[in-house]
């Protein structure tokens, strides 16, 4: 157990060092998220001029949603799955498969490093933005909310991990998985509420995304934080997360099993 921690711990450390070494691409990632957040911040502040409520959000709730988007995007969406696609397509994966380390474990440690560094940066950005522009924030009133939020965020992280790895497994069969992956990511961002709260959308569309695993990635945790979720919504949200985690862990696991088999039988 200790040796396991040590092994993946060193992957984590190396990955952290690497992100610092390749700062340019890290900063570009951040720039992308920041511009999205900034655009919506500007957009909402214009819309809130002369009104206190919009799509069921108060101004502080909306701004908190936008800034929370920045933090949850970093925690949930940042990972190194594009590396996995490359490693599978170039055959570099063999290099890991022959070593006494689980490839998935290795990737997870690498993802974790990515999440840590992005999360750190995201908090810093939010702190700077709040103190610079004096943005009103909504902070939860009860500590239970915070607990529920953390739980839902962790579940969302696991859920995204499973979805992302399921899509990445495509690379085992085709060298052309980059395009589908791009499409998946963009769709996911919208459907998860990573651009705007889903309440803006027509109710039918919103309920589809809530039924599918998408809304539970970002919209659901943020709504818990903003104390907008009713007890019933809370319950169904958590159930939804757990249900999809169960389904996807089965799907992803079997996809990877088959993928690795297909990869190995091809002879790399």
């Amino acid at each position: 157990m200790i040796s396991l921690i040590r092994k993946y711990g060193s992957v984590l450390r190396i990955s952290l060092q690497q992100s610092i070494y390749y700062r340019a691409s890290f900063l570009m990632d951040r720039a992308r998220t920041i511009t999205i957040v900034f655009a919506f911040y500007a957009f909402w502040s214009t819309l809130f001029q002369g009104r206190s409520q919009l799509a069921g959000y108060s101004i502080s709730q909306m701004f908190t949603y936008v800034l929370g988007m920045n933090i949850l995007r970093s925690l949930i969406f940042s990972d190194k799955t594009w590396e996995i696609l490359r490693e599978i397509n170039t055959g570099r994966i063999s290099y890991y498969l022959i070593r006494p380390i689980s490839y998935i474990g290795y990737c997870s440690a690498r993802d974790l490093a990515d999440k840590i560094i992005h999360l750190f940066s995201a908090f810093l950005e939010v702190w700077i933005a709040v103190s610079l522009f004096n943005i009103p924030l909504y902070l939860p009133k009860s500590p239970v909310t915070l607990l529920a939020f953390l739980l839902s965020a962790v579940l969302a992280m696991i859920l995204y991990f499973l979805m992302s790895y399921a899509v990445s497994a495509l690379a085992f069969w085709t060298a052309e998985s980059g395009g589908p992956r791009f499409c998946f990511e963009l769709f996911l961002e919208f459907a998860a509420g990573a651009f705007f709260p889903l309440d803006v959308l027509p109710a039918s569309l919103k309920s589809i995304f809530e039924f599918l695993p998408f809304a539970s990635l970002l919209y659901f945790p943020l709504n818990i934080f903003l104390e907008r979720a009713s007890p019933a919504a809370l319950l169904s949200g958590f159930l939804n997360q757990i249900l999809w985690i169960a389904i996807l862990s089965f799907v992803t696991r079997s996809l990877w099993k088959r993928g690795l088999k297909a990869y190995c039988s091809e002879g790399g």
């Binding site: 998985s177 395009g179 705007f196």
Partner: peptide
Amino acid sequence: WSSLGWLGGKIVRFVFFFIF
């Protein structure tokens, strides 16, 4: 397939912003 994916992604982005 890759090209279709990129195209799909662009259309998704266009359509969703439009819906928004």
